[in-house]
Amino acid sequence: MRATIIGAGVAGLACAVELAERGTEVEVLERSASLGGSCCSWFAGGMLAPWCERVSAPPLIVALADEGFAWWGEKYPGMQRRGSLVLAHARDAGELKHFARRTQQYEWLDAEGIAALEPDLAGRFEQGLYFKDEAHIDPRAALGALAARVQALGGTIHFAAEAPPAPAARGEYRIDCTGLAARAVLTDLRGVKGEMLHLQAPDVSLSRPVRVLHPRTPVYVVPRGDGHYMVGATMIESDAPSRISARSMLELLGAVYALHPGFGEAEILEIGTGVRPAFPDNLPRLRPRDGTLYVNGLYRHGFLAAPAMARRAAAFVLEGREAPEVMQ
C-alpha cells in the first residue's frame, strides 16, 4: 500500500506518521524548499489549550485535543504539560470573569497563586485563571521530529515538489493537506491571517503560556526556553499572507510590555505571518473528493487537532472507517 501526502505542515506530517506506522509506504510532497517554508504551522503558537479555546470553539475541540495530548507525548519528547495562565489587568477584570463563564477545567488564582506559578509576574496581577491540564510544544521542533519519524519509518519527503496530477493511481491513496491552497476544490475554505513575533527577552522568565485578555488587543506569550518567546497572534479575516501591519506590531508589543516590562528590552528575532485555513464553523474536516482525502480547516488548532485528524484519516483510507464528527 502506498500513500502520497501533499503538504508537509503539521496535518500532512501527522498523517504521514500515522500511515507509516501502520505499514503504509508514504511519500510526502512539499511545495516549498524546506520544512516550514510555506505553511502556517511554522508560525503557530504550539499551545495545546483546548479549555482556553473552548471559550470560542465547540466541545469537539476538547475531544480532539484529548487524543492530541497522548499522541504528542509519544511522538515528540519536548511537550511540556505545565498548564496555561490567563490574566487580565485590573481594569479588564470583567474579561476574566466572562472568559471563565465560557469554559471549564480551571482554577481561580489570586496574586499569591500567580506569583507561585510564575515568580516573574509577582505583584503585577490580582487575579488569573490556571488551566493546569494544558500543554505546549515548540512547533518547529515538533515538525522536525515528525519529519524524522516519517523517514525513520521508511517514508520519503520531497521538498520543492509539485503535487502530481489527479487522480491517484490504482492502489495508491492520496491525502491533500495543503491548507488554503486546496481552495479551488474546497470552496468554503477561507483564510484567517495571523501575525506573530519571536522575541529574545533575557530579563523575563516564564515557564508556561500566558494569555492576557483585553477587549481590543488580547495577546499570548509562549515560552520556547532560554529567554526565547513566541508572541501572538492576531486574527484577521484575510487570506493575503502579507507582512505584519504597523498597528498589529504596536499592539502586540504594547500588550507584552504591559505583561512584563522586561519585554521592552527584548530583541526582536523574527516577525512572521501565516494564513490559517478555516471552514465556516472553524472546525477541521476530512473530505473525500475524487479519490483524494482532504484534511483541512485546522484553523488555529493545527497542533491540537492534527493527531486526531491524522488517526481518522488513516482509519478512513486503510479501513474505510468514517468519522462523522469531522465528516459531517
Binding site: R190, G191, E237, S238, D239, S242
Partner: peptide, 17 residues
Amino acid sequence: LRRESAGERAGQAFWSI
C-alpha cells in the same frame, strides 16, 4: 473593513459569507 484587507481584496471570503 480593515484597510489592509480592503486594499488587497483579501477579506473577500468573510465578506461574501
